Amino acid sequence: MLVCSSITAQQDSLVVVEADEKYFEDQFYFGINYNILVSAPHDISQNSFSYGIIGGFIKDFPINKRRNIGFGLGAGLSFNAVYSDLMATKNANGTIAYQEVPDTIDYNRNKLSMNFVEFPIEFRWRSSKAEDYRFWRVYAGFKLSYLFTGRSKFVTSDERIVFSNKDIRDLQYGIYLSFGYNTWNFYAQYDLTSIFEDNVYTVDGEPIAPRTLKAGLIFYIL
């Protein structure tokens, strides 16, 4: 905030700069992370680079006089890809069968893609001041995610199988933590729900209930 006061009685103009003591840390955010499967079925492993991209906006709600402690409430999108050897095939009756990719099949990639609308709510601490835009931060929160597209894709040199996967859980949620200085911040999230709905099994009868651990970087833009 700039407050200008002009003194005309044979004095130079005076410019006074005052900080806004009721500032907010409203922020756009963007992040990229690596998706790690936790509690995957036996003998199922990841391959290639399983990635996630997040972005959105968070509204700041300070709760103390210094305004360095508060809550944040936001909305955003996330785009996720998990590459593994858990192969999904859709039968003629619409059911989906899961198994490890057989050794006899030479394939290019096997991907599960999931895209969500997300609603984070977080507790916020920072070392900020009204006149300082570079500061340390620690944000911890809970994130609710709603699936808007989920697909399985299996690609070989001869065929390409892609279909919408109805077994992916529509409503997922997890806890997360971000901390760092200024723009660069570490980000980690652990999903409390499994990727798939309950009662999804491999062809061998093993339950499929993997969860996702995400680790990467998040950037905040004022």
Rank of each mutant, 00 (worst) to 15 (best):
Q172R: 13
R66T: 14
S194C: 14
N80R: 11
G150K: 02
Y139V: 15
I121Q: 03
S113V: 10
A75K: 03
F116D: 07
T183Q: 01
G70Y: 04
P62M: 01
R126Y: 06
Y187S: 10
T193M: 04
R134F: 09
F163S: 09
E122Q: 07
M87Q: 14
F179V: 05
S113H: 04
S194V: 14
S178I: 01
L112P: 00
K143M: 09
F148C: 09
M87Y: 14
V138P: 06
N108Q: 15
V138R: 08
T104Y: 11
N108V: 15
A81C: 02
L77A: 03
Y133N: 14
I168Y: 07
G74A: 05
K129D: 11
D106N: 12
I161G: 00
L144N: 09
I195A: 00
F61A: 05
F154T: 08
R151T: 10
N93W: 01
V203Q: 09
A97H: 03
R126A: 05
R66A: 12
S84A: 07
N91C: 05
K59G: 03
I195T: 06
F116N: 11
Y187W: 07
Y107D: 05
D191T: 04
W184N: 06
V101K: 00
T202W: 13
N80Q: 14
W184V: 14
G72P: 11
D198T: 11
N108Y: 12
R160K: 15
I69L: 13
F71N: 06
N91V: 14
G70W: 01
T202R: 13
R169Y: 09
F79G: 14
D167H: 13
D132G: 01
N108C: 04
K65Y: 07
L147D: 04
I105Y: 03
F71D: 11
A92C: 00
T104F: 07
S178N: 14
N110Q: 06
D103E: 07
D103I: 02
L171M: 15
I161N: 13
E197F: 03
V138A: 15
F142C: 04
I105G: 04
R67T: 06
P102V: 04
P120T: 03
A188G: 11
E122D: 11
I96D: 00
I161C: 00
L86P: 08
G70L: 01
E131A: 12
K153G: 06
K65T: 13
S164T: 10
K166G: 13
S113G: 09
T202P: 10
N80T: 09
K111C: 12
S113L: 04
D103A: 10
K111F: 03
I58D: 02
T156W: 10
E131N: 13
T149P: 11
T193F: 00
Y201E: 10
D170E: 05
M87T: 06
N64K: 10
D170R: 12
T89Y: 03
D167F: 09
